[in-house]
Design a binder for these strands. Sequence first.
RNA 1: UCCCCGAUAGCUCAGCGGUAGAGCGGUCGGCUGUUAACCGAUAGGUCGUAGGUUCGAAUCCUACUCGGGGAGCCA
Length: 461
Amino acid sequence: MQRSKIKEILTQKKPDDEVLVQGWVKTRRSSKSVTFVQITDGSTLQDLQIVVDETNPGHDAAATLTTGCSVSVQGVLVESPGQGQKFEIQANTLTVLGESDPDSYPLQKKRHSPEFLREIAHLRPRTNTFGAMARVRNSLAYAIHTFFQERGFQFIQTPIITASDAEGAGSMFQVTTLNLNDVPKDNGAVKHEDDFFGRPTFLTVSGQLEAEIFAMALSDVYTFGPTFRAENSNTSRHLAEFWMVEPEVAFCQLDGLSELAEDFLKRLCSHVLANCLEDMEFFNKWYDNSTISTLDSIANSQFERLTYTEAVDLLKKSSQTFEYPVDWGIDLQSEHERYLTETMIQRPVIVTDYPKDIKAFYMRLNDDGETVRAMDVLVPRIGEIIGGSQREERREILEGRMNESGISHDEYSWYLDLRSYGTVPHSGFGLGFERTVQFITGVSNIRDVIPFPRTPKSAEF
RNA sequence: UCCCCGAUAGCUCAGCGGUAGAGCGGUCGGCUGUUAACCGAUAGGUCGUAGGUUCGAAUCCUACUCGGGGAGCCA
């Protein structure tokens, strides 16, 4: 007999159907005459109740089941006379596949703190929260690909190991096969020629520059993969290894890009509501009781658009006092961004045209010579969820900006080449996948929205 | 990296100078078509680590480690 997933059983099977179901025990309640076993198989948030009568030869085994055991059950689907579930399985046979010693099994049939669950990352996928998390992540990843695929974007796989060490996005992890206990040296300096690639190499901080190469040939492309930052960041919204989505669009200026970003975020919100409502209701109940209404309103509302200069004016005019005063020329602080999106505007805000001195060298210089065509999308609770820009497509101006930033023309000659041979206006942004999952689920710590978080001093599992 | 807070039973926490506590979970027994079931009994702790103050430290002080909140860096 073929196994059915619990989700299938609840949606496609009818009373009196005979089914084979396999999963893990959440909890068990027994008496002399009957035992109830609640099992889950991860296909849905809902547990399935198995009823084992005392006359069943498997009753003794069922009565000793504990949380975490794995079982295989053949039985008949019936409408449940009890409260709390529509259907249940009247077991014919129940086989214990794997025991789970209750003295040492850390998961209990009660709520655990996210901090504790992080310490047992190999078992936390079995919890309601993490099962829901995995399904929402999966659904979001699917929505990301379909959004771009439907619009004719090509999915490009950019390298994870890179030799560019000055992409302006923070410190990088070095990749080496040199023996660190006995590094080959030449006059005191490390002999990088002896290293695997014959030169220093690093884990990528962004696929953007490589994506630009393909945008200059295929027009509309995107990347979606792991990204690494060796920053000593200890916050609830930073990881050393995270996933990032980076579309790069040729023949597109900043206003086109911000439209794309807005459509994209709206699509992610509505997709999750349409496909993971049960899991979202769980997050709404236990983590943030405004998350569903927020997603709803985002899917149906207009994002606010402000220039940096307008944002600074607005903040200055507000009666709010900030720890860091607002002034034109300094970057917006977290408190400013959050006040803008959470209090003043109360929905996502796209801030554009930042002073050039606080943004990366590749962003297109405006005619005022002072600002660049940068774009940050700010959302309540998280702050910056998307950072992007129109890229500088004029070679001379790009070279000037590289000089100002101390970036080697030699090392980026290929990047400059794109501006010499058929350059076109183009734009792109980066969306932090885990920050998006945080925003959507309402789970406050980024370590609890990724299966195996990597943070400073922590790389277990 | 900086500021603030925390670390006591498997988990969540109380105790804050004078003999280590509760709830949940575990174990044993009872009971019931049960729903984080219920009732009774029971086991379980070098009070994060290392120093110091004191007649006496879980409790006060110092350092370190780890965790949380905030900041910076950013996605």
